[in-house]
Amino acid sequence: MPDQTLSVSRSTRLSTVAMGVLLVIIVVMALAPWWAGRADLRLFGEIFLYLALASLWNLLAGYAGLVSVGQQAYVGLGGYVFFALTLLAGLHPLLAIALAPLIGALIAAPVATLIFRLRGAYFAIGTWVVAEVFRLTAAQVSALGGGSGISLPVSVVTTLASGRFLREALAYWLALGVAVVVIGAVFLFLRSRRGIALMAIRDNELAARSLGIDIWKTKFVVYLVTAGLTTLVGALIFLQKLRISPDAAFSPNDWTAFVIFIVVIGGIGTIEGSIIGTLIFFALRETLADLGTVYLIAMGLAAILIMLKAPSGLWGLVRGRRGLELFPISRRVRGLG
């Protein structure tokens, strides 16, 4: 053997440092109820929920090639499941939240078998039809306020925790927790065999098929996991809002348009992109939201420009050709040259 040794590893010095920094950030953010004001805490919670939604949409569209414009179906479903289980079935809110992802995945299974018959862009519109069906169905449930919606009664709210501080802290921790769980799950999934298969499919469907990868099944699993976790996020969103209506729960703007902007601007197909996109989205929203429609027009223009000029988004520009990764997914060969 020559004195040169080759080894394959995933982590780089950069990614190791990044993981350390991330851990510190998570700990600091977990302590936020003690150092942040009420309004800030709400904002942080919202940021984490959007981060989770963006990461999930990115997994679906950026990795699995399943471009959905109807993920509001599962956000709204999560909200309604949470309200139904607590309000109608009388379950403890935490139990309702724990059940939400299972119910979401259960409902997503027949939905997937149906809309997977639509190819590519038609699949996208198919997901929107499903969201509309969910919305119209929710509007028919008079026990949950029908078309005008309903608020969570104080009696249910207080079962979560007695004091306001603890209640708000709990809602916040759940949001932080779901963001960490979702990003962690996406990260681990992409490092798994199935995740590698997914990236192979994205890069070349024909080649992946010839390698014996069951494309339908792989995409089906991703759709179910994404739907389940999106339902969980939806439950947490309406735990924060404490009020639900079909239009708010199944809003294509709030739960899909913004999420797509986040992922496209940050960089589709990377975990880092969703994080950067979420931060930029909230930075812009907090400073420019007063502009209303002009702000949304600017978002639309930005998304178009990025798609045309820098399709890998802002993280793609930072990452450059050297393939920087904060989340070590790719394997690298060391010792060459």
């Binding site: 414009v69 639309g300 998304a303 045309l308």
Partner: peptide, 22 residues
């Protein structure tokens, strides 16, 4: 790649809607 046309027309949709609102 189906992503660029899909996302560009999606952006266009948001622009038209909000321009009409304005």
């Amino acid at each position: 790649d189906i992503l660029p046309p899909l996302l560009v027309t999606f952006g266009l949709s948001v622009i038209i809607q909000n321009a009409l609102l304005t």
